[in-house]
Design a protein around this nucleic acid. Structure first.
Length: 266
DNA sequence: CGGGCCTCCTGGTAGC
DNA sequence: TGCTACCAGGAGGCCC
């Protein structure tokens, strides 16, 4: 789930389900997700206040409390993380690792089957982002076509590698990098230094369109069209553009899918 | 710097 | 049935 569109979907879910209700406790069922942070620190920072606002940068989600001098909650969803709100009397969902319990008897749960997610505290999201050297969020309005172009000009290597590099642009993972490449008509193993000005412009425009559309689909609860590569990620998957079979190749330990006929390699 | 590969984890599935 | 190998939307670290 958790690439930019999924995390944005979760951010909106967090906003609609978890703002403004006082927190009475943070239950840490699995300290591994805290990566060394003491569970009592979460309690100390959050209990008594309610969540007041959210912020997302790439695949990271942050939430502030109503009391300004407190740190922000940081959530990262790894490969299998997700949020689920329960109401008074409902049982905690499967794979719940951390639960934020509200005064109304409900709770917001971080579920994470594979336990690769993370829960933390940061003084300031912008400082955290800077410390991690994350690139601009892929949907940041400030990431204009010229700004994108300028960043891209400083990179070398496979397009796929650049798109999934969170220090280049934050938010794209294995799935959406492939999706953007297909929609832009560019093969993922193209070398970014070989892209033309038009290619780069198309890439920027397409990246935003694909991510925006994915968010819309998630918000509407609709299935992704079969023309999307993410529905065809298997050895015999079809390219809905040309009717041929998709290609796949291992890249950094996982599979990249693309259509060699519809995506030009430069 | 980029790419290949390993690790941290769990669990579903394919193949024998 | 039981076992093994491999796979899954992330990320950090090591090596070349």
């Amino acid at each position: 789930m958790p690439e930019l569109p999924d995390v944005e979907h979760m951010r909106r879910y967090f906003e609609s389900e978890a703002l403004g209700v006082p927190l009475v406790g943070v239950e840490v069922r699995d300290p591994l997700l805290l990566r060394g942070l003491e569970p009592s620190a979460l309690d100390g920072a959050l209990v008594g206040a309610g969540f007041a606002s959210t912020y997302r940068h790439g695949k990271y989600l942050f939430a502030s409390t109503a009391e300004g001098d407190r740190p922000w909650l940081l959530l990262h969803f790894g490969m299998t993380g997700g949020l689920e709100r329960t109401q008074l009397g409902e049982v905690d969902p499967r794979y719940t690792r951390v639960s934020f319990r509200f005064a109304d008897g409900g709770a917001l749960h971080l579920r994470d089957q594979r336990r690769l997610g993370r829960v933390g505290l940061v003084d300031d999201p912008a400082g955290f982002v800077a410390g991690k050297r994350l690139g601009p969020d892929a949907l940041d309005p400030a990431l204009t076509a010229p700004a994108f172009d300028e960043r891209l000009a400083q990179r070398r290597g496979f397009l796929k590698g650049v798109l999934t590099n969170q220090q280049f642009v934050a938010g794209l993972g294995n799935i959406y990098a492939d999706e953007v490449c297909l929609a832009a008509g560019l093969a993922p193993f193209s070398l970014v230094e070989h892209l033309s000005k038009d290619d780069r412009r198309e890439l920027h425009k397409t990246m935003r369109r694909v991510l925006g559309k994915a968010i819309d689909l998630l918000e509407a609860g609709r299935d992704f069209p079969r023309s999307w590569l993410l529905t065809q990620r298997r050895a015999d998957g079809d390219c809905r553009g040309c009717g041929g079979k998709v290609a796949r190749r291992r890249f950094e330990g996982r599979y990249t899918y693309w259509c060699p006929r519809c995506q030009k390699e430069v």
